[in-house]
């Protein structure tokens, strides 16, 4: 059970003056139950890449295999694939359309062919899973706050019971508290529902805390693919491509340079605190 990306290339507007190579020679294997962060500057190809994973964009060359089956095979059911690989886009405004939150979240299950009752059950389940307050279940989705809209959008995809959940910039435009809540919730979802989660972001701080594997994209290619600690060790190279390692990485490196024998691998404030205390005490 995995997604394999093989020699993937994608070119926007081929053969015109506006030709852009958005992805070049991407090779990845995404295993079951992984928590992956994809990071990159605007235009690095991260959004284009995730839209390939559920077949919304067809690659110019190369292949994608889901659980061993080539998704570009003739007769492969892309609609079923999209319910297995759930993709939540950055702006919830792009998908909310129903009169009530409940109806909106049931849209996905209904497209899967489930009846009204079962779709509602799924909707309740996934709204609870994203900690959406019950008293707003029958409110209009357009009147919710940004953070709540995002929860509804995630629930809308979760209601289809995907095996892989891909979130494109789920924290963009949220305040720090809303951001932490969403990320905490996603992290819980992964452990309670046993799904693979891919988190796309341009904020290192966001992903460092949660993911166990970090893919850094630059100029349409994969620059690093490793644990967060190993990736952040390249903090100088990351800066050159316009990305910042978490602030604690800088603090730890500065301490090490000043002669304090700390290990520089800490990626979160809590880890850094423990490391510094263990050296000092």
């Amino acid at each position: 059970m995995s997604i394999i990306v093989n020699e993937l290339n994608y070119i926007y507007n081929p053969g015109t003056a506006m030709e852009v190579q958005a992805l070049r020679d991407i090779n990845l294997e995404i295993k079951d139950g992984e928590f992956i962060g994809i990071i990159g500057h605007t235009g690095s190809g991260k959004s284009t890449l995730i839209q390939h994973l559920n077949g919304l964009i067809r690659a110019t060359s190369g292949g994608i295999f889901y659980n061993g089956a080539d998704i570009y095979d003739e007769g492969y059911d892309l609609r079923t694939l999209r319910t297995k690989v759930g993709l939540v886009f950055q702006y919830p405004e792009h998908q909310l359309f129903e009169t009530t939150v409940m109806a909106d979240v049931s849209y996905g299950p209904k497209n899967q062919g489930l009846d009204e009752k079962e779709a509602t059950l799924r909707a309740v389940g996934s709204l609870n899973a994203v900690h959406f307050p019950e008293k707003h279940f029958y409110d209009s989705p357009f009147e919710l706050s940004g953070g709540q809209k995002r929860r509804v959008a995630i629930a809308g995809v979760l209601a289809m019971k995907p095996e892989v959940l891909i979130l494109d910039e789920p924290t963009a435009g949220l305040d720090p508290q809303g951001r932490d809540e969403i990320l905490e919730m996603v992290s819980n979802l992964r452990s309670t529902q046993h799904i693979t989660v891919i988190l796309v972001s341009h904020s290192m701080e966001d992903v460092a805390r949660y993911v166990d594997r970090l893919i850094v994209m630059n100029g349409g290619g994969v620059m690093y693919d490793d644990t967060p600690q190993a990736v952040f060790a390249h903090y100088k190279e990351l800066e050159e491509v316009g990305l910042m390692a978490p602030q604690v990485t800088y603090v730890m490196h500065a301490l090490a340079e000043a002669g304090i024998p700390v290990r520089t691998g800490a990626t979160t404030v809590a880890e850094a605190k423990d490391e510094i205390l263990s050296v000092l005490c």
């Binding site: 998908q95 996905g108 497209n111």
Partner: peptide, 16 residues
Amino acid sequence: EETDKIMKAQMARGAD
């Protein structure tokens, strides 16, 4: 572009 994005967002929820 927005139409394209909305279409994709709904297709990701199984729209046809």
